[in-house]
Nucleic acid binder design. Structure first.
Length: 269
DNA sequence: AAAGACACCTGTCCGC
DNA sequence: TGCGGACAGGTGTCTT
């Protein structure tokens, strides 16, 4: 489900309500996520939330007793509800605060994760090898150009690889390639420096706009207040259009790396 | 070192 | 109404 804008939207929605809250109870209804939730998570009882941040698609909640590292996988979402609210199916984790609200983690497919670390969370083995944040200055045309120039694989696979750049999932990969007029199948090393520049700008623009509109709701993503993301209506190619909004040509649907790609064969070369 | 396949899991939708 | 199959927003790990 969630790509970078959806995780960022979740963070921004939760942070004002979670910061400085004290945890009085942790209920694990289903520990079997991508990795089992460590039982030591209970050590965070009576801890206070001191900071929240996003790195790639990981959401990091720091406390005075350790750091929670969350991932939403394909179908995860987080909400705050009144403590007595029964919630819905697949709410695997409930973290109750002293003010009678509780954080609910819901993830029907259970590809997500909740991990615990006492070290610097950015040095965690899942996080330290990650590439630059796409919206940071570290992600620029020279960098992506260097990453592309020796790679024969299709450009879409390159921008979706988290060790190259994080946060670009299937939707926004398709959208940014459309915006920059690049065919997703094009071998990375065959793309000019100038077009790589256009791609970098498109990735930044698409992600930034999606964040501003609260992410994309295809099926069941909701912001932490329960509202859908409004970027859905801005999608140009992904699962939306039969025909290209620019030229009217039929949108083509192919498979790359076991993921569905949508593109316009007329506008994207 | 790079690239591709596979695994994990549930829900939904479509055709018969 | 039921059943089978395809498909879904991710990514670590294993195999070529």
């Amino acid at each position: 489900m969630p790509e970078l804008p959806e995780v960022e939207t979740t963070l921004r929605g939760l942070e004002p309500h979670c910061l400085n809250r004290s945890i009085i109870q942790i209920d694990i209804n289903q520990p079997k996520l991508r990795w089992p939730i460590p039982p030591q998570i209970q050590l965070l009882k009576n801890a206070r939330i001191t900071a929240m941040q996003r790195r790639a698609k990981y959401l990091i909640m720091s406390t005075d007793k350790g750091h929670m590292i969350w991932h939403l996988g394909m179908s995860g979402s987080m909400r705050l509800l009144p403590n007595q609210d029964p919630g819905v199916k697949h709410e695997h984790v409930k973290i109750t605060f002293e003010n009678k609200t509780s954080l609910r983690y819901r993830d029907p497919r259970r590809f997500g994760a909740l991990l615990l670390t006492h070290d610097d969370p950015l040095l965690h083995p899942l996080i330290s090898p990650l590439g630059p944040e796409p919206l940071s200055e570290d992600f620029h045309a020279d960098y992506l150009w260097q990453q592309c120039k020796n790679r024969k694989t299709a450009i879409k696979n390159v921008i979706m690889h988290s060790h190259i750049v994080v946060g670009v999932g299937n939707i926004y990969a398709c959208e940014s390639l459309f915006m920059s007029g690049i065919n997703p199948k094009t071998s990375a090393l065959r793309i000019s420096r100038k077009r790589i520049q256009a791609l970098v700008e498109a990735i930044k623009m698409v992600l930034q706009q999606a964040i501003e509109q609260g992410g994309t709701t295809l099926k069941d993503f909701t912001q932490s207040d329960g509202k859908p993301g409004y970027f859905t209506q801005s999608l140009k190619v992904y699962a939306n259009a039969q025909n290209c909004v620019q030229c009217g040509h039929a949108i083509k649907r192919i498979t790359q790396g076991q993921r569905t790609t949508y593109y316009c064969p007329s506008c994207q070369h």
